[in-house]
């Protein structure tokens, strides 16, 4: 008896958008034994990361209060990273920073997370292409090929990435994470892919502060694009020209 052989006609990266559209869904074509072909139909092509979109955040620093950490708590619960009592080595996908203006003494508070740069230094330096940007602008670590070299952490101007220092147990099934790899804010891709907004944005809205807005920067009609159009905002470390997807207002 000959065992069934398996071959993928194309790697996902080689499969063009047209292939998907033609077939009307995400399709993996599998060749069972000689001549027997099995088509595994996925959902709609629209379920893929859409290159016609660029997800981004707009943070209104004027509405963010220093005693509120709802976004941090929400992120930690959603993605299953915890405070283990040693902040220097703990994961911090999102952190709150309180600032004092040196010239005026004015006090500010804001959340910091991966800024999802268009031209991200972490992607440039990653030796294995584990750091990558999805078609819709979300910068991620592919933890399956991350070797834990931490060069991306050296390169990130925002200190947005964390290295998992300890063995992890009891992860969320939709947010795997484990020892020896680098991680950072994923913009809650698993929620975005099902049409929700990131957990931090939702939590910030629930507190009534509403300091965080999530949306598609490429859609001129979206709420976030309109807000960016009508009010001044800035990107952190704009001098580096990285075109982050996260922008700040009233800073």
């Amino acid at each position: 008896m000959k065992p069934p052989a398996l071959s993928f006609h194309k790697k996902p990266s080689e499969m063009s958008r047209r292939d998907f559209l033609k077939s009307g869904g995400a399709v993996a074509t599998i060749t069972l034994a000689q001549g027997v072909t099995l088509m595994a139909f996925g959902g709609q092509a629209g379920a893929m990361a859409d290159p016609g979109k660029r997800w981004g955040l707009l943070i209104d620093v004027g509405k963010c209060t220093s005693d509120c950490t709802a976004c941090v708590t929400a992120c930690s619960t959603e993605n299953g990273w915890q405070d283990t009592g040693h902040p220097e080595t703990d994961a911090q996908w999102i952190r709150k920073v309180d600032l004092v203006d040196d010239a005026t003494g004015h006090e500010l508070s804001l959340p910091m997370m991966c800024q999802h740069c268009d031209d991200a230094p972490c992607i440039d330096v990653c030796p294995t292409t584990a750091s990558f940007k999805r078609a819709d602008g979300i910068v991620l670590v592919d933890k399956h090929i991350c070797i834990g070299c931490r060069y991306c952490m050296m390169a990130c101007p925002y200190k947005a990435r964390s290295f998992v220092h300890e063995p992890v147990r009891g992860q969320k099934t939709y947010a795997p994470r484990g020892q020896g790899t680098v991680e950072s804010c994923t913009l809650c891709v698993h929620r975005v892919d099902r049409g929700d907004s990131p957990a931090c944005v939702e939590a910030c809205g629930k507190t009534g502060n509403g300091a965080m807005m999530f949306g598609d920067l490429m859609d001129p009609e979206s709420q976030i694009s309109q807000a960016l159009l009508n009010y001044p905002s800035l990107a952190l470390r704009d001098d580096l020209g990285l075109r982050p997807g996260v922008r700040y207002q009233n800073l």
Binding site: V125, P127, T128, T129, I147, Y151, F163, T181
Partner: peptide, 20 residues
Amino acid sequence: LGRPDRLIVAMTTYNFSSIF
């Protein structure tokens, strides 16, 4: 490295924009 067991990945997948 965080994952020395994945040395083979470092030897087989290259990102040519990385100095590393």
